[in-house]
Design a binder for these strands. Sequence first.
DNA 1: AGATCCACATGATATGGGTCAAATTTCTGA
DNA 2: TCAGAAATTTGACCCATATCATGTGGATCT
Lengths: 256, 256
Amino acid sequence: MTISMIVAIMRHNKIREMSMDSVCPHNNTFHCGDCRMNALCLPLALQTKEVERLDEIIQRGKPLQKDHHIYHTGEEFSSVFAVRSGSIKSYTISNSGQEQVTGFHLPGEIFGMDGIGQNRYTNSAVAMETSSVCEIPFNRLQELSIAIPTLQRHFFQLMSLEITGDQQLLSLLSKNTAEERVATLLMSISNRNFRLKLSATRFRLPMSRADIGNYLGLTVETVSRVLSRFQKQALLKVDKKEVELLNLDKLRELAN
Amino acid sequence: MTISMIVAIMRHNKIREMSMDSVCPHNNTFHCGDCRMNALCLPLALQTKEVERLDEIIQRGKPLQKDHHIYHTGEEFSSVFAVRSGSIKSYTISNSGQEQVTGFHLPGEIFGMDGIGQNRYTNSAVAMETSSVCEIPFNRLQELSIAIPTLQRHFFQLMSLEITGDQQLLSLLSKNTAEERVATLLMSISNRNFRLKLSATRFRLPMSRADIGNYLGLTVETVSRVLSRFQKQALLKVDKKEVELLNLDKLRELAN
DNA sequence: AGATCCACATGATATGGGTCAAATTTCTGA
DNA sequence: TCAGAAATTTGACCCATATCATGTGGATCT
């Protein structure tokens, strides 16, 4: 028995396990209507009947282990994805061959929209921890958008928000110091956790220091030093990936 | 006669002139079908009949003088715009109160999509020279997208391309040197000029050095020094805003 | 349990581009 | 056409962050 066979079996078992875990008792499928995320995710702004139609096209609960890819740069685009649990990292390989982290995706967030423009993904997407995602075939979503104008509008909005988010990040990288950048990322995660009804002050960073640095245009060393400095100033406490924000006001001020 | 009156008259004459210049002989309106840009702009990928329907909703040829704004940050979103002639700059005011240039728009390009997400423009848009733009009311465009799925798809693609473009810029800012950044911008403008069937090697930079620096996350001084250095290395010739690219290979290599 | 590896932390040093200053050129308005 | 303002260039110096080096603790494999 080869290693790849073992991996395949493990993967298969994992899929079973995760599916069971989220299954609707009577018919073995899981619905957007039942998902914890439905107030934040695509169903947002849809009516019950419409959610049911969206439900039909979504392939739910794809489970993924840490470091497993959802798609790679250059692969043919077919779907966008919603994070159901865990966390996903998007990145490209820049012209000069280095990785560039372009985003971190938390539950309820949609990713993969970069693939629409050229009909292939420009980013790769990888699970930063055990995660599950819903797959939304884009052709079906387009059709449905014609039938449900609210959905079309909502999706235009999502893409627009991605644009403005990237532009804010541009501004951050081009005008702000290392401390401001790190504080901004911490506040962003804090706010997104709050939206998820999780603690805004105590959470686990799903990404490595290297990913943080890459995303913020800094080196690992700088990220590490900034976190140490923040801890010394009692702005927060870090222990490995666990963070506790102690002085939200000051951090918010840094993040501005 | 006051200055503002003279300006008003000049402006009026300018409007007349611009309108006349692009007027359809029989009914005093200008159509997408006749526009030089129609192979690059929104009508791309539409059939003749469909272009006529798009035509009906577009307000064409809004003329603008240098430094006139099309919209400001925070204003209610209503339309996206296409550049017909001239060039437009998008920028936001960052949290810390400084200007952040987020894009330069050349003829055939669409801008204003940042407003969709929050129903207000997050950027301001200003003419960098005498320009004209077509206004596309977004509600009408959405309706039309339902009737013409090709248009819906095309618009999704446009937005996705804006996302990937911003992400490439992120990578540029976070990983590349001043020389690489400037070379990348020059090659970008060169390529876009080529697409417009203009010279790829000799053109006028519509933006100031300050705008270039701001866009690329550099100071004016650095931009100026890089251009001088490039000239010393015979990669190009700059005379004020006129540029002639002399060594495309080397510049392309820097831009990678 | 020991060996290996990897993420993270921290110190020492180097440097690209920022900052400040000043000269020069170009634009603008009367 | 001229004066003042604005944009650009260039030089000198400095600093935030990169780079290089080394150490430490925790995880993984055998």
